[in-house]
Design a protein around this nucleic acid. Structure first.
Lengths: 197, 197
DNA sequence: GTCTATAATCAGATAGAC
DNA sequence: GTCTATCTGATTATAGAC
């Protein structure tokens, strides 16, 4: 990060921002270039094609987010219970998205629209991340602190979709990113209802 | 529905299917036409532009889904408690998406990519729907059966994003649509955790 | 490393025959 | 009501000067 406006990095940042806000086909090369302070053809000096640029943003987004969540969870220390670890992951994920990481928001926004071949590669990179979530959920179930009647895969899909959505609807105002993260964690762990009926 | 392959309807169905599976820009007019059994220019005899066609699919999707959920909830009768009504809405929404309504799945898939003006109009049509969800949530909170510490708007956003996602990841196999719907309802109402810690 | 052309492609839309 | 042929505009990508 010492050299944040080195050409390549400046373009990647501009692409992440533009993909996040305009989607895959909405993000024109000229928009990205403009934000990076250059004209469209100049991008080709740094990247062979729009697809290559997009793919690099996706990979960065996945690894950024992944590293951040893992760091928060593992930072709890080995004494933390599985359910506490799961809660920390939820909070970290929401907080990361809302505190302005364009890369991970870009992934959430454009993933479904990627060309087939690229989506396969990005999905493969994502799978280690998926497994991490899965392990958090399964550990809590084995521990008896999470409902064993829930399917871990279904929980993971619903959970990630729910959390990823916040970057598209959140606007600063009444609630802070940290408060949204707490609400998400409470909702996911304890549900909307006060008690089982 | 008696005349399901009337020209207009055939095109709308084809557009809903194609938008659902390929997204807004991925759904070419030629793809839609092919599925409707004609060539692209023929669409212009029935619709003035791709945008008009897309907008009509969005509106249909919203009203279909809306009517279905309301019918299920109101069908419970006036004796049903707010939390039971909320659960019924969740189940109905998931079940509707997974039992093959291309229109509402198309809305979930392409909404964020719509041109600004159209998105505003679609959002306006959506707002009565949003209010219905909001009322279900607020009623349960007032009733004391839902956690009053949760922000109703945040709950609604997270809830809808979570439920809408299932049409993009669900594949028939181990679990049926009805089972996914039950898992979603249990997750949302009671949470992943067994008890508050 | 960025620019000014310009090519190549593709998709939405139109004209007009049948 | 659907077709063939064509136009138009936008966007990715290339060539080559500076």
């Amino acid at each position: 990060m010492a050299q944040a406006d080195h050409g390549r990095t400046r373009i990647l940042d501009a692409a992440a921002y533009t993909l996040r806000h305009k989607g895959l086909t909405g993000a024109k090369l000229s928009d990205i270039a403009k934000r990076a302070g250059m004209l469209a053809p100049s991008i080709y000096h740094h990247f062979p094609s729009k697809d290559h640029l997009v793919e690099e943003v996706m990979m960065e987004g996945i690894y950024h987010n992944n590293r951040h969540i893992m760091a928060q969870v593992e930072g709890l220390g080995s004494s933390a219970s599985p359910i506490v670890r799961l809660r920390a992951a939820v909070v970290a994920h929401v907080d990361f998205l809302l505190t302005g990481d364009d890369y991970s928001s870009a992934v959430a926004r454009v993933f479904d629209d990627l060309p087939d071949e690229m989506r396969k590669r990005v999905l493969a990179a994502y799978s280690s991340f998926d497994n991490y979530w899965r392990d958090l959920i399964v550990a809590a179930q084995r521990d008896g602190s999470a409902n064993q009647a829930l399917d871990p895969t279904v929980v993971r899909k619903f959970l990630i979709a729910m959390l990823d959505s916040c970057s598209s609807w959140y606007r600063p105002g009444k609630l802070s990113p940290a408060q949204i993260a707490e609400q998400a964690a409470d909702m996911l762990l304890y549900g909307i209802a006060v008690e089982r009926t």
